[in-house]
Write a protein that binds this DNA or RNA. Structure first.
Lengths: 110, 110
DNA sequence: GTGATATATGGCAATATTACCATATAGTAT
DNA sequence: ATACTATATGGTAATATTGCCATATATCAC
């Protein structure tokens, strides 16, 4: 008996309930899978930063950085806290950086 | 002195050499960041599988599964070996599944 | 109140991803 | 050789991502 974990909605995939965990996991990984966002996470691993500091890390429009932060925030990877005019971001689950060891391993192996 | 790790090519980002590691890492994570590919990796963690077996895991066109496997292969996450008519896939760096602990942590924390 | 600073959001265009179908390639059997 | 099975690739359409610009919102200083 073959288990079919997916049904399609239009042309795109929707996971059946039993398999929705794969979708949740993929969403979190997708949130991390961007060079700018990895750079941000890497710097946040050393401690909280305000958006103004994060902005200085990359030569991108302020609105673009803000949207990258929103992706990380919506995925539950970082938290924000407003203090005065500034918003400070922190890693909510610092383990997200552990993947780096492995990803580095993949790079070395190739 | 602010370091600007990115230059833009057209409307899209290109990493400067010193920061290209973030791009490499992001590419590997992006290759993993899809529910079908996570499902495949999860099953491969139990041992090699031929494409015909992988095809039975999901209700997707054979060509679609083949393309997902190509994404994993091109990222250096899996290896393929042809034996007779069949192609067997194996995890090249089994640690890629370790991230799951952490990703689960993010899910639980939210 | 006005003005300056810090951050977020709406809109849109360029690009990337992902699905399917059709077809190509390779091995095996007859 | 033909026929069949297993897998990969080209094409294309729907959708998603990502950048910038313009604008909105919120806080602080005056």
């Amino acid at each position: 008996m073959v288990i079919l974990p997916y049904i399609t909605k239009g042309r795109y995939l929707v996971l059946k309930k039993n398999f929705s965990n794969y979708k949740k996991r993929a969403n979190i990984m997708k949130a991390m899978a961007h060079p700018v966002r990895l750079l941000i996470l890497d710097h946040l691993s050393k401690g909280e930063m305000c958006v103004c500091e994060i902005n200085e890390l990359v030569s991108l429009d302020q609105s673009t950085v803000s949207k990258h932060l929103a992706v990380l925030r919506n995925a539950g990877i970082v938290e924000d806290e407003k203090r005065g005019m500034k918003v400070f971001y922190t890693l909510k689950t610092p383990c997200v950086l552990k993947y780096l060891d492995c990803v580095e391993g993949v790079i070395r192996a190739n």
